[in-house]
Amino acid sequence: MTVEIRIDPTRCRGHAICALMYSEGVELDRWGYGRVVDGTPEGRRSIKRALRAAAACPNGAVVVEDSADRRIRLAGRGPDGG
């Protein structure tokens, strides 16, 4: 399964939790706003970390979607089983 992680900059308030959870793919700028540097996590563990980052963002700024642009969530489990 290919998934993509994105940060909606209009929602990001610089809590920086995404960079802790999905450290391999998110960098923080000088103010602490997250910027995705690797948007396509590979492997179960990495995808899971991306999903945790999305779940942990207090502003819902981190979004993980499948190849058909459907949103996948950690708790609810997506159409493909998460």
């Binding site: 209009t10 610089g14 700028d29 103010w31 602490g32």
Partner: peptide, 8 residues
């Protein structure tokens, strides 16, 4: 006034 890099 939405995106951090623009606002800051």
């Amino acid at each position: 006034g939405q995106c951090g890099p623009c606002v800051q």
